[in-house]
Amino acid sequence: MLRRRPPRSASADDLLSTLGRLTAQAREGAELQQARVELAEALQREMLPATLPEAPGLRAAATYAPARHGLDIGGDWFDGFPLADGSLAYCIGDVQGHDVEAAAFMGQIRLALRAVATGAADPGEVLSRANDLLLSVDCGLFATCTFLRFDPVTWELTSARAGHVPGLWATADGRFGLAEDAGGLPLGIMPAESYPVTRRRLTKAGVFVLLTDGVVEGPSFPIEVGLAKVARLVSDTVGAEPADVAAGVMSVAEFTGHQDDAAVIVLCHDAAEDRHG
């Protein structure tokens, strides 16, 4: 009977050659991933506005922070623009997923919201029309969003939410809380979805904050704890400059251990009676 010769062990040269090939492949993969991260961050920052519109008695600021480790960047956004009737629109949102595709979809949503806002009566209609428009392109992604409209004549905020984290408010008399308004599903999920509108007349001087969940949720503590921390911080900074409030709110993300990107909008406002007697 012939005995089968045992397989020959690989030589040191063979092992080194294999290791070198695998290392080169890993390096190429890492470089490709890093390139995608850098592209996503560049897209994200270039598509976000440098400034937000303001009005006498209303001051605005926003800030954005990329994901801590880079891999989850792409998708959070904010925007602000004037409307034809003289009111001001502000919106903030979070796209499902990350990377270049999410950053590109974020750009589509911003354009869709700007387009439909020119002919929509209120924030609920804006979200409803934008939702149907995004579904028509069938990209397979969805996004949460809050859309807010400020009327400088009535000194009223009207807002609608599409599955987004609630905003926060505080007034100069020491009151503060969450804006847990009724809302609808995220954009891009269900056709003909409706979005209830909440109206607030700004009778007292204060601040209104919109943010994404990357600010208030992470491995270190849950979203409820993060929101409570931001609410207390906002109540302590009524009267401060909006950029300072935005920076303070964003600092909460450092305590959450967040791995997502994050965005914040801050609106500091006078009281309605101070503007209109």
Rank of each mutant, 00 (worst) to 15 (best):
P191C: 05
A160D: 09
T51E: 15
F255D: 15
E254Y: 11
L52G: 00
S128T: 11
A160L: 11
G97K: 05
L135T: 03
T158N: 07
G184M: 07
A170K: 02
T154R: 13
E156A: 12
G163H: 10
G214M: 03
L48A: 09
A112Y: 03
T146L: 11
I265K: 00
A243K: 08
R4H: 10
P191R: 03
M106N: 03
D261E: 07
L111W: 08
A115P: 04
L2E: 15
A115E: 15
T212P: 02
V264Y: 01
G218T: 01
E101H: 07
L32K: 09
H164Y: 10
P166W: 00
G107P: 06
S17R: 14
Y90L: 04
D270V: 13
L267Y: 02
R27E: 15
E273H: 13
T144L: 08
S194C: 10
S194R: 14
G86M: 09
L88H: 04
S136C: 05
V100A: 04
T146H: 08
H258V: 10
A65I: 09
A231K: 05
V215Q: 01
D270N: 11
T51H: 12
G74T: 05
T158M: 12
M47R: 11
V116L: 09
G140M: 07
R149E: 11
D261H: 03
D14R: 05
G86W: 13
S136P: 01
V209A: 04
E273Y: 09
H269N: 10
D132P: 06
A263V: 07
